[in-house]
Simulated assay, not measured.
Amino acid sequence: MTPHYPDTSLQNPRASAFTARLYRISAFIAAYFLLTLAFVQLQRPDQPLAQPISHYLAGPYSSWLRMAAYLLGFSFALFGIAVRRTFRSPAGTLVMLLMLVSTLSIIITTRFHAPWPHPEHPVSLFDARLHFSSAVITFICAFMSMIVLTALIWRLEAFRRRRFIFATLNVTVFITLVLDPLLLSLQGGLEKLVTLQMLTWQILMIRYLLLEKRTIDTAFPVSAPATAAAARDSLAQRTFARLRR
């Protein structure tokens, strides 16, 4: 018979509220980045829609987008930590690690300018290669985290009616990532499209995790060893208090 361990996340509203706060801040920053990117695009008619996002990191309004990109890295970190607090499992840990790698790589991508030089901002070959490599790592790690987290909650009954939208986003992101290096003339537009798809997935996933929190807490209880250890500590404290009386 499988022992039942109480779900301490339901018994600790303070920890639960903190996790929800991490999710909300992460979603807010993701939405802020998309709005900033759209604003900069509208304010830069010299840059067509098919230009890569990297082109906007130099020139007018570049500081706005650069700050939004740094904040997006912070959003990834918050999302990964919140997922780990929600799913105390190897899959939850993997999602957190992937998002932390994405955080580091997007910071490097933003710090080092684009491989396409801007007249006012010359770019060295080292900076260009570092920028390109870290950008690729960001997209790959973010996509892998999407797949892992979607697979983790796929069998939940509450997730059944949302499978189509998340599966569609996963598939379209994969197709866009495959086409991006093949269609060089559309590379920038595809880069913006995959960014929109990924951040939309993140915002929708956060909304789902917050709405179905109790269902998820029941399906993914706190790991048995951690809960058992906490119960033993509590029992030892009560026993010691009785002996002192």
Results as ranks from 00 to 15, higher is better:
I203V: 13
L204P: 00
L169R: 06
R111Y: 15
N170I: 14
G189M: 09
I206Y: 02
L182R: 15
P117R: 14
F174Y: 08
I147F: 14
T150F: 12
T172N: 14
R162Q: 15
D127H: 15
R155N: 07
R160N: 07
P117Y: 03
P119N: 12
F112Q: 00
V173R: 04
I147R: 12
L169T: 09
F220E: 01
I140Q: 13
R207A: 14
V123M: 04
Q197S: 03
I137Q: 02
T215G: 01
L104R: 06
F132V: 05
A219L: 05
E212A: 08
M198R: 11
D127W: 13
T110L: 02
F220C: 09
M205F: 10
I147L: 15
T150H: 10
A142Q: 05
R162W: 15
L186H: 10
L130Y: 06
D127M: 15
D217H: 09
S134V: 10
A142E: 02
A135Q: 06
W201H: 06
D180Y: 10
P117N: 13
A114G: 12
L199R: 08
L204F: 14
R111C: 04
I165L: 13
D217A: 09
F159W: 04
L204N: 02
L149P: 00
F164A: 05
T168I: 10
L193S: 06
T110G: 05
P115S: 07
S185V: 13
I108E: 13
L193K: 12
L204Q: 05
V194M: 11
E191T: 09
Y208W: 06
H113D: 03
I147W: 11
I206Q: 01
F164H: 08
C141P: 03
W154Y: 07
K192R: 15
F159D: 00
V123N: 02
A142I: 13
I108N: 10
L204Y: 04
S124T: 13
A151H: 09
H131R: 14
E191C: 10
I137E: 02
M144N: 06
W154Q: 05
L209I: 08
L211D: 01
P115W: 12
F164Q: 14
I137F: 11
A114V: 05
T215Q: 09
W154K: 12
W201F: 12
E157N: 09
D127L: 04
